[in-house]
């Protein structure tokens, strides 16, 4: 599949008309804004930081401070996330575009700091043109943070439901790559039971991953497309 087709699939997977979790949260006022800020920091701060580190704006300050400044600025704009929803873009692409323009705003106020290639690269829209190494790195960071957040969410949910040992089985099997016989031995269970426990915990993890994609605008009917699009973008 070429990059244009992937882009089309990504757009089809994101539904400009649905009421997203982010817009619903922002409508709740201060507490909702805090929730959105926490979500953006947990899932997107690291990929955005990767983008700043790879850009020609390293002179502008600590990358994570720039990311904080960017998110605070955009969260303060009433229509920023409404425009995102209308764009039909995955949130990660919308934020990277926004960060790119934020860096240009910083550069505009420091005209002497950028010269030659640096300015040229800042003028390029990251959502256009061929896939760059920087964008692959950003998408990989995004994939990692989504997976990590889903692990945290699923682990909490399993624990809350009294399925902590199921979650241990999942971790032993998927993180430590233990065969089921060893997972069963570690948990003092029969092999069939260990398989069942892992399968149940895996369903919680699957739900957590899918919930994160829906939260960030994916059409619930096309979450698979949104996941495949990120997997494709993160390939070198």
């Amino acid at each position: 599949m070429c990059s244009t087709q992937v882009g089309q699939v990504a757009r089809q997977a994101f539904q400009p008309t649905q009421v997203t979790w982010i817009l619903a949260a922002l409508a709740r006022g201060t507490s909702g804004r805090r929730d959105v800020n926490r979500h953006l920091m947990e899932v997107y701060a690291q990929p955005l930081e990767v983008y700043v580190r790879g850009s020609s704006c390293r002179w502008a300050g600590e990358p994570m401070e720039i990311v904080h400044g960017f998110l605070a600025d955009r969260l303060g704009r009433a229509d920023y996330f409404e425009k995102w929803q209308r764009s039909g873009l995955p949130l990660r692409k919308w934020l990277i575009n926004g960060l790119h323009f934020y860096l240009r705003e910083i550069a505009d106020s420091h005209p002497d700091a950028l010269r030659g290639d640096g300015w040229e690269s800042l003028l390029r829209d990251p959502s256009q043109g061929p896939k760059t190494k920087l964008m692959v790195a950003v998408d990989r960071a995004c994939m990692a943070t989504i997976v990590r957040q889903a692990l945290v969410d699923a682990g909490r949910e399993c624990e809350r439901r009294g399925l902590g040992r199921h979650w241990q089985a999942f971790q032993l099997y998927y993180f430590r790559d233990l065969p089921f016989a060893d997972v069963a031995c570690d948990l003092n269970e029969k092999v069939e039971k260990a398989k069942q426990m892992t399968r149940i915990a895996r369903e919680y993890f699957r739900s957590a991953v899918r919930e994160l994609f829906i939260r960030d605008g994916a059409d619930p009917e096309h979450v698979d497309d949104a996941i495949r699009s990120l997997l494709k973008d993160a390939e070198s």
Partner: peptide
């Protein structure tokens, strides 16, 4: 085996290689 608490933050999780992240993300597919 003693029960270990589940991680409360992403920072408490083991590091993820791109290959592992990709494998885990695929578990999100139906």
């Amino acid at each position: 085996m003693k029960d270990k608490p589940s991680p409360k933050t992403a920072g408490e999780l083991p590091s993820l290689t791109p290959t592992m992240a990709s494998r885990l993300l695929r578990l999100g597919l139906s």
